[in-house]
Simulated scan of single mutants.
Amino acid sequence: MRIGLSTPIVVRVPEIASPWEVGGGPAELTRIAETADDLGFDHLTCSEHIAVPAAEAAARGSTYWDPLATLSYLAARTTRIRLATSVVVLGYHHPLALAKSYGTLDRLSGGRVVLGVGVGSLEAEFALLDAQWAERGTAADRALAVLRVAWGRREVGDFVLDPPATSTTAPLWVGGRTRRSLRRAVTLGSGWVPFGLPADALAAYLAAVSRPSGFEVVLSPGRALDPLADPGGTRRRLTGLRDIGATVACCAVRATDIDHYCDQLAALIAVAAPL
């Protein structure tokens, strides 16, 4: 099981983010990305919300850096680590626009993009953007089908998309918390990134489907880990994810400042190494 990093600063969800992140900027973000890259983490993430309704901010947080801009910045400061959207909302974009923008980033980064996508869950945000809320799941299936065809190809139908991504194998992680999201991931994607599901539900969902070779199951331990203060508890939580079927664990770590955060990253890799 590989270890990925839920990037701090760029997304601040209450009860997961640490207070020091509020003052974090490009310098801290660069140090984190370079440290994670050097330590061998699998990926960095960035999520998408264009505008969070004020009534939802207390639960969801209100800080969401733009994923394309953020991951492009991180691509220039790293060499190996993958760059994953977790997730981009399909209903906010034309699939060919995603193939072009993230395909360009894939080429700039040397093939390190993972396009994590979801159907979206904020009706008010859809309304703000004049995006289709009703039947968004069906629309997402159509968009995924187009992305699979367009990814890495210079010519799509009667149109040219140049530059294309570096490979025609689309790295598509599908987010969600339903059986339908898992079926969508198995059928149209290359991985599943569930959220908000208990361990027994995750295990039951995964046991009910046949996953293709190389399919990635990206699970989160939930609240932030503290591998320096609690290496045993951290290992138990990661082992639990592995036993459910995770191929990648996407983790957040607790810290008091940037120095402590980078120390936590090194400790996390050490704790997870035998897994």
Rank of each mutant, 00 (worst) to 15 (best):
V10R: 04
A207Y: 10
L206W: 00
G157V: 09
I9D: 09
L182D: 09
F195N: 12
F195I: 07
A55M: 07
D42E: 15
H93A: 00
R177N: 11
D257T: 09
A273I: 11
V146K: 05
R154F: 06
K100M: 09
T168Y: 02
P164F: 10
I50A: 05
R242A: 15
V52E: 00
P221H: 04
A84T: 13
T178Q: 12
V52M: 02
A224S: 14
E15Y: 03
C251I: 13
A246F: 06
F195K: 06
R211P: 07
A165L: 02
V22C: 08
Y102L: 15
S121L: 11
G103R: 09
S167T: 15
A139C: 05
G103K: 10
C262A: 08
G111Y: 00
V117S: 05
D200F: 00
A99D: 13
I81S: 15
C46Q: 08
I32F: 07
D226A: 15
L144V: 01
D230Q: 10
V13E: 03
K100W: 03
A27Y: 00
R153D: 05
R154Y: 05
G189T: 08
A36H: 10
S18C: 15
Y64N: 01
A224W: 02
E123Y: 03
Y92M: 10
G176T: 07
P194S: 06
A59Q: 15
P14W: 01
P67E: 02
A266Q: 13
D141Y: 00
P274A: 09
L275R: 13
P221R: 05
G222V: 05
T256G: 14
D230C: 02
G61S: 00
A229W: 04
I16L: 14
A267P: 06
L90I: 14
D226C: 10
D257R: 05
R242P: 04
L202F: 10
G111M: 01
Y73E: 03
E28H: 08
G232T: 12
A27M: 02
I9E: 08
W133R: 04
A199C: 00
A199N: 06
S213G: 08
S101Y: 00
C251G: 13
T169P: 04
Y102I: 13
R12M: 10
D106I: 06
P164L: 08
R153W: 04
C262Q: 10
T187A: 11
W151H: 00
L188W: 04
T234A: 08
P164G: 08
G61N: 00
S167G: 13
T85M: 07
T187E: 14
E21R: 12
R2T: 11
W173Q: 09
G233S: 06
P198G: 12
R112V: 13
A17W: 08
S167I: 14
F195Y: 15
R177G: 12
D257K: 11
L83H: 12
T169A: 14
T247V: 03
E48W: 07
R211H: 06
